[in-house]
Design a protein around this nucleic acid. Structure first.
Lengths: 187, 187
DNA sequence: TCAAATATACTGAACGGTTGGTAAGTATGC
DNA sequence: GCATACTTACCAACCGTTCAGTATATTTGA
């Protein structure tokens, strides 16, 4: 099928960026088609509906974070301190390089009450994120405590991303990262 | 003017609940009119546009929190520990009694990139919230440190509200409140 | 005192535009 | 020739917004 202009993966990735910036309800199928250099009819050739497309986007983004970021936590090439540092630095880059914040958090707060079918995708994403950070912190804390610290860190992370967007000051992210690293050092 | 079915304040308050649950873009003027027992034409008699209505809603909610919650931090009838406890307990009730989470956070993540005119209302709300918590923590920490802890607490709070909605477990809120109280005790 | 004039809250229909989604037809490559 | 990818045109429904008209209360003035 070399007559396809762009791959399904590219459509999903480009759609993810548009959804993150404009939100789910404020993004039309035409917006997505324009961003991909296509007409919206093509989208209905590849995806059943806007909701199914969004599910594919959420799944794709989850997979991208799983292999690119979360996997770092399970590597055995670094010390826990190095792992946490690499993890947080990479996370910060992924979230703050382009405006629009975190697609998963944006989608959660926008659609959780009106489109519950997205909920499982959001749940699994954050569960995986927490698992990854639990893995890192459990090198210093016991499983239980490590998980609670991981949950706290993810919560603070999303709060900091929101503050970064609201106030436009990157110190919220920096200070949050320092606190997360401190938690590993002063166990 | 007793010929008015419901007051402007009631329209704003009812609209706030609908916006919080359904989101800004997914709420139509008809939805708001139905919730108020009116027709949508009436809304345009009281508000210039949907965006102006939303600004009135954001301002009204801000005022409500200012007088009902934030004011607690400046009371001189309680010890700092009592103030923090009352503040957090009340905040938890206000946020978790009805589903939909926090209107301000929802609106921020949904509209910050596409409707920047709402940003000042969101900024001022969170700035006031941080100021209030800074006031409480500054009884134990010096101004600078108190403010950073206040910012951290608000970030964690919003993160916990999101987790409560995603996972449906109230322990995220409870554990967050415990951490916030601990920060005052082990200065 | 009691209409007439005025102001306000509201109704219901209509508007131009956009939405998610469909269908019929064309181009492309095996 | 035949499946796949794509274009174009289209649909009904809904969107935010407008507006002419109606109902109700208040103010006015003789």
């Amino acid at each position: 099928m070399p007559l396809q202009k762009i791959s399904r993966e590219e459509m999903i990735f480009t759609s993810a960026q548009v959804f993150r910036k404009r939100g789910y309800n404020n993004t039309s199928m035409n917006d997505l088609a324009d961003a991909c250099g296509l007409t919206k009819g093509v989208f209905y050739h590849h995806f059943e509906s806007k909701e199914e497309l969004m599910k594919a986007v959420l799944h794709g983004v989850h997979l991208h974070f799983k292999t690119t970021l979360f996997a770092l936590a399970y590597s055995d090439k670094y010390t826990p301190e190095e792992k946490l540092d690499k993890f947080l630095t990479k996370a910060q880059k992924m979230f703050s390089k382009s405006d629009g914040g975190c697609l998963m958090a944006n989608t959660a707060l926008e659609t959780l009450s009106s489109l519950p079918e997205f909920a499982p995708y959001l749940r699994e994403f954050f569960a995986d994120w927490i698992d990854a950070m639990t893995q890192i912190y459990s090198s210093v804390y016991q499983e239980d405590k490590a998980r609670r610290i991981a949950e706290q860190t993810v919560q603070e992370f999303e709060g900091a991303v929101m503050f970064l967007r609201i106030f436009g000051e990157r110190r919220y992210m920096d200070e949050m990262l320092e606190r997360a690293k401190l938690r590993l050092m002063i166990a």
